[in-house]
């Protein structure tokens, strides 16, 4: 390779990671509950990067057994990458396990963390702490007219996503607002990724690999038989994901 070529480019990119909000430091209880969650969609969690949020740990839980926590999540196929929040003591423990200490983003966007509870059972308590109102009026919607192919991701930041071309299996649609699909749909669809609970998914034929609103998700195996291939909407009703024919 010629020497005048740059060996790399350094950029600041933003990602959204699944975040485990610890509500207790009982590793066994977490393990059990997480195991059930992973069993529902093993593919979704496999090799998924994972962040531990310590901000909701009760005061009494001064110590967290990070070696156990990291070992347990790795054992379930995930890749823990860092922690957020917590006391200096807890952060020191995390650092010893080579977890990154991530900045607290809540200062800039109060919605982001407060409204994105961990997936599954552990989030029962978390939901009580959620704030009631959703974000201000969404930005302009994004319209996609070319096929979204396997491996491609489309993200509509701040607003809705409207797709007029086929979405292949292995492709991913994400939006802060709602997502509308007017063509064959076989990929994954994640609406309200920053916690907008009013976000919905509308599609003409339910064939998505996965649908999710604010992180509450359902995989294709779990769709009601009668709705597969039908024109449906997906929304949150009392914290549960509902699929309803249109």
């Amino acid at each position: 390779m010629p020497s005048d070529q740059k060996p790399f480019e350094l950029k600041a990119d933003s990602f959204s990671f699944p975040t485990l909000y610890l509500l207790s430091n009982d590793i066994d209880a977490i393990n059990e509950s997480l195991e059930r969650q992973v069993a529902k969609a093993p593919g979704f969690f496999l090799h998924a990067p994972l962040v531990f949020d310590l901000s909701r740990l009760p005061q009494a839980c001064t110590e967290v057994d990070f070696p156990m926590l990291v070992g347990m999540t790795r054992g379930q196929g995930m890749t823990p990458i860092g922690v957020r929040g917590g006391t200096p003591l807890q952060q020191e423990g995390a650092r010893l396990m080579e977890l990154a200490i991530l900045g607290d983003s809540r200062g800039e966007n109060p919605k982001r963390t407060a409204k994105k509870p961990a997936r599954g059972d552990a989030s029962e308590e978390a939901r009580q702490q959620q704030r009631g109102e959703t974000a201000a009026a969404p930005a302009e919607s994004k319209i996609i007219t070319r096929p979204v192919r396997s491996g491609q991701k489309v993200y509509a930041a701040g607003g809705d996503l409207i797709v007029l071309a086929p979405v292949s299996s292995g492709a991913e649609l994400m939006a802060d607002g709602s997502i509308h699909i007017y063509a064959p749909l076989r990929g994954r669809v994640l609406a309200g990724v920053k916690g907008n609970e009013k976000a919905r998914i509308f599609c003409q034929n339910l064939g998505a690999e996965l649908v999710s609103v604010t992180g509450r998700y359902m995989i294709s195996e779990d769709y009601p038989e009668s709705l597969i291939g039908k024109s449906v909407q997906v929304y949150l009703s009392e914290d549960h994901l509902k699929i309803e024919s249109l």
């Binding site: 070319r146 096929p147 979204v148 192919r149 396997s150 491996g151 491609q152 292949s168 299996s169 292995g170 492709a171």
Partner: peptide, 13 residues
């Protein structure tokens, strides 16, 4: 078919 689909995605980006 899936690999072709992936390749089409790369072509268009």
């Amino acid at each position: 078919v899936r690999d072709s689909d992936r390749m089409l995605g790369i072509l268009s980006s």
